[in-house]
Amino acid sequence: MTAALIWVLLTVVAEFALLSLNLFGDAATKQGQFIDDAFILLMALAIPVFTFVVTMIGYVVIKFRADGDELEDAAPVRTHKKWVGSWLIWTTLLTIVVIIYPGYVGVQELRETHEEEADLTVNVTGRRWQWSYEYEGRAVSLFAKDDMLILPNDSLIRFYVTSEDQDVIHSFWIPAFRMKIDAVPGLTTKFDVNTTKIGNFNDDVNFRVQCAELCGRDHSLMFTRVKVVEPAEFEQWIADQAA
């Protein structure tokens, strides 16, 4: 009884703390928001499991400890059908829940836009230790390390990612978007994002393209600053570049 109470109490406190914390700041894409929500949900589900383990250990250590040096045996309970049964049912239920939501639904969510036409397509190429970008149909490409990747807000952006043939594997990651995909020589990978937030590297370091697959010496420096702007401003910038 006491143990159950402690468990409930701990769980409530922990859940409350979780929901009142802002763990990672806002994601800048629709997909990213889903991922953040999924993370919070998984936390919310993990907390009761964890507090159960903690309560049990804590309670047992205080309540059932045997002091003194004589050996004293406990009552030989070898198993308990009901406990095993309900444990199996609960863990299976939990597993099924996370498989369906956020698991399966999450995958669908991230692929939802695959059939739609993108507002902007960017071809990304990785090379040691720098990214280059080509804005498809806009006659603009970025090659230099110091270039800033400018992207329009409120748009569906599709990234096609690859790595040069004789190069190594990189990974194209924008932390603020929460999305990443590897850049593999000889293979083109892709992901879609719906941008939802204006922002730029100077205010939030997570507005950066960061290489997320170890690629040798300057792996940590293989990043590009990112800036998400209003669509109109974006078109203006494109026009300026092309000129």
Binding site: A38, L42, A212, E213
Partner: peptide, 25 residues
């Protein structure tokens, strides 16, 4: 038991495709 509960439960975050895309590496 205590530590592996944390280790195992965080494994679930990584096993979930959506969250792993953010957390991988």
């Amino acid at each position: 038991v205590f530590n592996f509960a944390i280790g195992g439960l965080t494994g679930i975050f990584l096993a979930d495709v959506a969250t792993d895309i953010a957390l991988q590496d």
